[in-house]
Amino acid sequence: MTMLFASSTSMEASLPSASGLHSALFSSTSAGGSLSPLTSNLHFPFSPLHVELTSGRNGRKFHVRGSTVSVESAVRTDVAVVRIGTRGSPLALAQAYETRDKLKAAHPELEEEGALEIVIIKTTGDKILNQPLADIGGKGLFTKEIDDALLQGSIDIAVHSMKDVPTYLPEGTILPCNLPREDVRDAFICPTASSLAELPAGSVIGSASLRRQSQLLYRYPSLKVVNFRGNVQTRIRKLSEGSVQATLLALAGLKRLNMTEHITTILSTEEMLPAIAQGAIGIACRTGDEKMEKYLGSLNHEETRLAVACERAFLETLDGSCRTPIAGYAFRDKDGNCNFRGLIASPDGKKVLETERKGLYQYDDMVALGKDAGQELLKRAGPGFFDW
């Protein structure tokens, strides 16, 4: 702990003895006593002596040398401040708090008050809620402003939902950490039916995800899907008000928000293949920031990182526009190998192409596996498939 000492306010006092000095000093520092300045000097008319007293209440030390008593106030200068950048939605904040709590648990110095700060940043995706994501730019809608803050030094780390992160990272940033992945499946939420199959023809499903829309229409062409944006709480409210008959939400988000009571049923990955990196949290920092890299490296969950790398390699190879429904899921099977399923579709669900791969659960193998799966679907799709 670093101590700063300064000499400022002086006041005169008279004490009969060193024992009286101890009593006077400690009584003056309790309950708003008179020794409030950072340092005070008290002059006493008695013979030279050296006494050191320490107040356990606030860390102050009191030294008597000759006729001068100096009061030293301990000021922390080594508190490790980490500013955590995040969106302001309840789910984004839940993910930022999870990151904060994991940092505290892994690094005792970050348990100090003020060592961790949550910084809320509003993104383009948060500002424009009345249009489909595809119409307002797609890639980077929920990350750009946070990345800018990171590069400008306004924050030290950035917490993202990995499914919102483009396949490229801004120059000057790295993403060395994925937290343990939550359940990747989607949840069906409906007050009137227990499953998608039970919904009457013409029922309206609310979803802002082209991936969900296309897979729904592929399996249930009699249903109607409408754009349905907003945070989880907003969508649940709209559903209860009767705006739509049902909606689909990521199970991971509902779990992190402790809102699983709204779930009607959970869809298998065979029925609804998840978004790339769904359920995964990624944390970025500036390139060359060794301190932040060390902090984030201690939180990284390698199994999740490799699965996300495989899925993002698939997405990057396809290079689909924000108007292209793409899904993919990599996981470790019971034998310890990587299983991967990938899918592309037309927005109306009339054409769906799928592929599967299996390989070693190792970074290079999994990235190559994801790329190979993407190249296969590109060839099968043919020219113009992504021009929606």
Rank of each mutant, 00 (worst) to 15 (best):
N58C: 08
A96P: 04
M162L: 13
M162I: 03
A74H: 09
V64H: 06
P90R: 14
H160M: 02
P108N: 12
T173G: 00
F142E: 09
A96D: 04
I157E: 00
K104W: 08
R65G: 02
G137M: 07
E111W: 04
I84H: 07
V69N: 03
A158D: 09
A158Y: 08
E72M: 13
V75G: 01
D78L: 08
D164F: 07
K122G: 09
V75F: 10
L150N: 00
A96H: 07
E109A: 15
Y168C: 14
S67N: 14
R87P: 04
R65T: 04
L116R: 14
D101P: 03
D148N: 06
I120W: 09
G85L: 02
D148W: 02
G140V: 06
A94I: 07
T77H: 05
H107A: 11
L169H: 10
T77Q: 03
I121A: 12
L129I: 15
A106H: 15
V82H: 03
T167C: 06
D135Y: 10
V82G: 01
T68W: 10
G85W: 05
A80S: 08
L103G: 11
L141N: 03
A80W: 04
D147T: 07
P166S: 03
E111D: 00
Q152F: 01
R57T: 15
V71E: 06
H63R: 05
P170I: 04
N58Q: 08
G153E: 02
K61M: 00
V81R: 11
M162G: 05
A105C: 03
S161L: 01
N58E: 10
D135L: 14
V165D: 00
G138I: 12
K127P: 02
L169C: 04
E72D: 13
V64F: 13
I146D: 12
D147R: 03
K139I: 07
R76W: 05
S161N: 08
K144V: 03
H107W: 15
F62H: 01
Q95G: 01
T124D: 14
L129K: 12
L129G: 09
A149K: 03
V79S: 06
V69K: 04
V82T: 10
T167W: 01
G125C: 13
G88C: 04
Y168V: 15
D156N: 13
A158W: 08
P90G: 10
A94H: 12
E112W: 04
A94W: 11
D164G: 07
P108Y: 11
L93W: 10
E72R: 11
E109W: 10
E111M: 13
Y168W: 14
L110K: 14
R65C: 05
H63K: 04
A92D: 07
Y168N: 12
P166Y: 06
L150W: 01
E109P: 05
N130T: 15
A158K: 08
G137V: 02
G138R: 02
G56H: 09
G137Q: 07
E171A: 13
T167I: 05
I136W: 05
